[in-house]
Write a protein that binds this DNA or RNA. Sequence first.
DNA 1: ACTTATAATACCAATAAAATACCATTCACC
DNA 2: GGTGAATGGTATTTTATTGGTATTATAAGT
Lengths: 260, 260
Amino acid sequence: MADLSERFFADQSVVLPSGGPLYLQLKRWIEDAIHSGQINPGDALPSERDLAQKVDVSRVTVRKAVLQLVRDGILVQRHGSGTFVAPRTQRVEQSLSQLTSFTDDMARRGMVVRAQWLDRGLYLPSPDEMLILGLTASDRVARISRLRLTGDTPLAIERASLSSEILPEPLAIVDSLYKHLDKSGNRPVRAIQRIRAANLGAEDAGLLQVPEGSAGLNIERTSYLASGRVIEFTRSIYRGDTYDFVAELRLGDSSGGTKP
Amino acid sequence: MADLSERFFADQSVVLPSGGPLYLQLKRWIEDAIHSGQINPGDALPSERDLAQKVDVSRVTVRKAVLQLVRDGILVQRHGSGTFVAPRTQRVEQSLSQLTSFTDDMARRGMVVRAQWLDRGLYLPSPDEMLILGLTASDRVARISRLRLTGDTPLAIERASLSSEILPEPLAIVDSLYKHLDKSGNRPVRAIQRIRAANLGAEDAGLLQVPEGSAGLNIERTSYLASGRVIEFTRSIYRGDTYDFVAELRLGDSSGGTKP
DNA sequence: ACTTATAATACCAATAAAATACCATTCACC
DNA sequence: GGTGAATGGTATTTTATTGGTATTATAAGT
């Protein structure tokens, strides 16, 4: 603890970045310390009282700065334990979530992506859909399927299923499904994704313009609202030869224990 | 805040890293004693009560330090017998479990996984290996490949490539590649992973006992040292029908930070 | 004059750290 | 083979440190 504060305050003088209220100066300063690598994910911040004494402000002022950083997901607090820099995994997950947005992901690779509707409509739910979306046989399910392409090269097939209660008019979707959901207040906050390899059947292979039996990436994603309710179930099939899925892993440190 | 330096100094002339909780200071002291050769693998530590009395802390405090070292694989305890320094080969780096997650992952599904060597040796590097590992045509590359199976069902093929500088004797590997690397001080801290679908060629399909052309998950992983240097490059091929890859995503919040 | 944001003070609650007392196992010795 | 002194293992309690909250004072903006 004392050690950390020493490190923490070693380079910078006790003079805060100027301008604005104290707690904002302090917030910016902590952010800088994290971004510049002086404090790393998993590290503990000095206790609020230590920080306050060192910078010579009241503890509540420190707290106000810290709380904003907690709200932003930069810091994590544990009552009775301490304040810690949030693990990078959250940020990795955030970057993974951008896979959610197919268009963004491809645009990052310099490709212009267009979509072509395959189907939009209300149907009787399949057993799978009833099970996952929690529907009864008398409910209706909204299905949206489209083909993603760059130029004339098909890249992926997306088939989304939602309760008709959430998406009563599938034809009303013009832009992104997620934007549409967001406008109606149904915003997914969490998703479980399963990736596996599969050989493409005749229909999918035809749509993707590859030989039947070619390898494809099969990604199933179930999205949840903050309430925990399932909002959407999507099965995507990517051509194995044009799409890959990149992720960064951070290998943990075994050095243990509770950080003071 | 208490500091044990003086107490240690009284009996042993060891400079103790000061600061932090007592049990952490003690833990660091024991680690140093082992690393500096004052205690050797196989040797017994003083009993917990003796240590406690010598350092003048409670036995539970000693125990907390010892338990962490046991958890890290540095020490081994035998009820009624004593505490001993673990032989080097037994030390398990928990941190690497995320990398060698294959076994854990399968174990979690109730499967017992075994491995079968396909190849271990030094070769002339392929262009890919030269590029990724930073080798010249006159360097040699160490290749390790093995088949993972449950019972008699093959699950995956792993092919790792390393610089011969890092792994001069591939045949010396008996257990885990990562344990071996750790012993020689080459410890990966970061990895980039690429997942894609691919149709299996004749050789791989034969090893995995599936028809040629079946879909497989192709995972390429490049591991980095803390210095940023590439240490290892692994291509794994999983059977598409027996392995899937599940991940949880947290969908980011687009709302910005504070607006003063 | 009133509201708002900021900052300080004092106190509450949860957790970790450390100490105490007691239980279970091993193993040398009789 | 029994027996006891050694060992590690566990439960409970006390204390210190941490974040959490309510209240109050002050300065700036309207």
